[in-house]
Amino acid sequence: MNRLDRTLASLQHNKSKALVAYLVAGDPDLKTTIELMHGFVEAGVDIIELGIPFSDPIAEGVTIQDAHDRALKKGTTFLKALQLLKEFRSTDKDTPIILMGYSNTFMANHKVLESPQAKNIDGLIIVDLPGEISHKDLGIKNDQLHSITLMSPTTKATRKKAICRNASGFIYYINVRGVTGHSTLNFKEMANNIKEIKKSSNLPVFSGFGIKTKEDALKASASADGVVIGSHLVQMIEACSNQNNYKKIYNYLRAIAKAIK
């Protein structure tokens, strides 16, 4: 049982939908990332997906690509991101944190992920890892971390079962055929696919990619157990970073939390 299990259990108990927020560690800088994370939680975010910047993020649209670039230029590393989490945990002991990134950075940093420092995180989403395997297959020896699997509109029925068997924590349903930030959402297809996934798994299914407005979030949460907001938040963070005032973002999240809960 880690923070993610507890949060998911309590959401289920309260019959409440989850609001998941994505941001990139080190964008615009690590200090602001902590500030934003606390702000997100206060605004009603249940789970934080912390993006680990990578030089070659093949599943990201331009918005998140640029954020990865900015974070790397600021000197963000995996180690520094974990140190940041330590600081975050000094005042927030409950919010689940999931690291989201690419196989190569996780593999290269497996030692940290096996160290006591990893206690501050609750799971991994490895975007370019097939759903049948997990971080352990990359040589990361840590049983405490959930390996969150992704499914997409193109996932074949024959693989769905195997992926569900391997899934842990929640299942991440990718709403679009496309990279992050892609914005043509098909809510009917989403509802059908999520229903299908739920036949093979008791885990909550969250809907992510392309969710932008409160209306999107509401429609998605009609079929999903939670929604993930990514590119749109990253875009807002970039826009707000000029004035170093992120109130607009917290208001936006608060409105969504209120709508879907």
Partner: peptide, 13 residues
């Protein structure tokens, strides 16, 4: 191996 976003797994198969 096949280390790709899930969306491509079907196309590869």
């Amino acid at each position: 191996g096949k280390f790709v976003p899930e969306t491509l797994m079907k196309a590869l198969a």
